[in-house]
């Protein structure tokens, strides 16, 4: 290949990538601009507009908005359910892949995970409500944390399974010969080795929990409502308060965007080292 041809093809690649980036970014830029517009400027599609902070002020400080609380709730529920999922999934992945279960146990667990994953979450939401309500778990952090953990467990089980399988068996054997008990092996051998996998799975789990809408809506009330529920309120009876929704959305994406910028290398590295081989 000649130098010019290579240069041409590099140029072409960048051109394609930049085009794709523009298509991806456009709605983000659009919604960010929308957050600084008045509703009418937004509806009129005004390109030049006097920016206003009113929407943000409304979202953050108006008496009808609980945004700060929603945000805290989402963080607590997202982090706790992610931690729970990682804990449960790592243990289960270890158990299923490394503890010599009969085949049918492994297949029925993973098969069930796939089947459960197919059920639209909306059909589960009211079943969960009627289970949680009598024992006081509706409108509680714990209830939603359990629900989100359950929703994300199939994916986590599948991902962590691949990572745990990738841990060389000799290492585990060596640890056992050295007299280590199972908890020690888990803490000292498995967890350090699957750390990239934990990061990748954790980030995806957190994002899915952060964005989940129908189940959160059913299981929460004002005190425990999450960000998507708050944003859902902008879709009113007969109007959509677009500019308020835009401001709330921009604020809601901030932590996820920051997380992504910091952590995207972990996600890719984590997945690279195992999950989709």
């Amino acid at each position: 290949m000649s130098v010019t041809a290579t240069r041409q093809s590099t140029f072409l690649r960048h051109a394609l990538l930049i085009l794709a980036a523009i298509i991806v970014l456009f709605p983000f830029l659009w919604i960010t601009a929308a957050a600084f517009k008045t509703q009418i400027a937004l509806l009129m599609g005004r390109v030049l507009f006097a920016p206003t902070l009113h929407n943000f002020a409304d979202v953050l400080f108006s008496s009808t908005s609980d945004y700060v609380r929603n945000f805290t709730n989402s963080l607590i529920i997202g982090l706790a359910s992610t931690a729970l999922v990682l804990f449960v999934a790592t243990l289960a992945a270890f158990s299923l892949n490394r503890m010599k279960w009969p085949n049918w146990v492994m297949h029925s667990m993973l098969g069930w995970a796939v089947i459960f994953h197919m059920v639209p979450p909306i059909t589960l939401a009211s079943a969960w409500y009627s289970m949680f309500r009598p024992i006081g778990l509706d409108n509680s952090y714990l209830g939603l944390i359990l629900a989100h953990a359950t929703l994300n467990l199939p994916m986590a089980l599948w991902m962590m399974g691949v990572f745990v399988r990738d841990v060389p068996g000799e290492l585990i054997e060596a640890a056992r010969i050295a007299g280590a008990e199972i908890p020690t092996i888990l803490a000292r051998v498995i967890v350090p080795l699957v750390r990239p996998g934990l990061a990748a799975t954790g980030i995806l789990t957190f994002i899915f929990s952060w964005n989940e809408f129908p189940v959160s809506l059913t299981l929460t009330q004002r005190q425990t409502a999450t960000v998507p529920v708050a944003i859902g309120k902008y879709a009113q009876e007969n109007t959509i308060a677009f500019s308020g929704m835009a401001a709330a959305s921009v604020l809601s994406m901030l932590p996820a965007v920051i997380l992504l910028i910091i952590a995207q290398r972990f996600i890719v590295r984590g997945l690279t080292s195992g999950a989709v081989k």
Partner: peptide
Amino acid sequence: YRTVFLLPILMPGIIIGAIWKL
């Protein structure tokens, strides 16, 4: 590029619906 291309999964479906509707 990698960061940019991952952005859309951060948006809740309900916001995506509203943006694209407009």
